[in-house]
Design a protein around this nucleic acid. Structure first.
Ligand SMILES: [Mn+2]
Ligand SMILES: [Mn+2]
Ligand SMILES: [Zn+2]
Ligand SMILES: [Zn+2]
Lengths: 138, 138
DNA sequence: TATATTTTGCAACGCTGTTGCATTGTATTA
DNA sequence: TAATACAATGCAACAGCGTTGCAAAATATA
């Protein structure tokens, strides 16, 4: 696991620092997506807010994590699959946010459906966010 | 037009105030969705920020407008169809946000597709946000 | 180990959204 | 229309998110 973390950083030409290792570790252990808030708390106030912001930015640019738009307007982040790299994301799965526990899931096996738009619109991205209750909160 | 505004407010048991009339008017004339920022500027600094926030909240609760989640994490608002009332929204259409001009469209005639989820998830809402270029920005 | 390059922490800032409370405006009834 | 009850507004203050500039610290390179 520790080696996976270092490999991932090296593969993306990132220097190995404490904050990057720790934040990447949090994502690898996380069940759902993480918000900045979660990371700040789960890392035990070890790093500055700004460092966390910058690390998340870097990870998004490198294709290590992707952002998830949510209805409550708070950005969440989750690990990408292997085919995302260097700013070219290919995350075409549906996201689910539980109204009860707030957990945000990447439904990797549910692909976003094709939606045809009126003439004149050119689509480059489609986000599907579903909400309701998850299996733990029935 | 002016009568439409007053009627709408009365129908929703809202008292007739300058800010409500003005903000509702802005929505009726708007081509796309409006953010708080847009309203604050288009109303000519006539009303306090807080009043605008509270008016938007009230309109959402009454089913006059609905919120649109966007990938850039800024809430936008747009008029509801007639069948939304008193906190019961039935907005099941797709939204499109232009990367070029920022305009957010309600595609009222494009309904959100059915997406079946794995067992355990109970869905109450589905949001589809598409982005790319609109007809004005080809 | 010495040097060049990156990353970090801190301070400061602007923006968004919320709350409490006194003042003002609207609706109601006589 | 005027008096009253009630609701909405403006103001001040606050908390949270996200960004930037810069000096100090950590990392990579040789
Ligand atoms: Mn995802
Ligand atoms: Mn809409
Ligand atoms: Zn849940
Ligand atoms: Zn456009």
């Amino acid at each position: 696991m520790h080696q996976t973390i270092i490999d991932t950083l090296k593969r993306n030409q990132l220097s190995i620092t404490d904050s990057r290792k720790k934040i990447l570790e949090l994502f690898l252990h996380a069940k759902g997506a993480l918000a900045h808030f979660d990371i700040e708390h789960q890392s035990g106030a070890e790093f500055d807010r700004v460092t966390i912001y910058r690390t998340l930015q870097t990870f998004v640019e490198k294709g290590i994590i992707h952002t998830i738009p949510t209805a409550d307007n708070s950005i969440r982040y989750a690990l990408c699959k292997d085919d995302c790299a260097n700013g070219h994301h290919h995350d075409d799965h549906v996201h689910f946010m539980c109204d009860s526990c707030g957990t945000t899931y990447c439904l990797d096996h549910v692909t976003v459906p094709q939606v045809s738009l009126p003439n004149g619109f050119t689509v480059t991205q489609t986000d599907v966010i579903m909400s309701g209750k998850c299996m733990k909160c029935v």
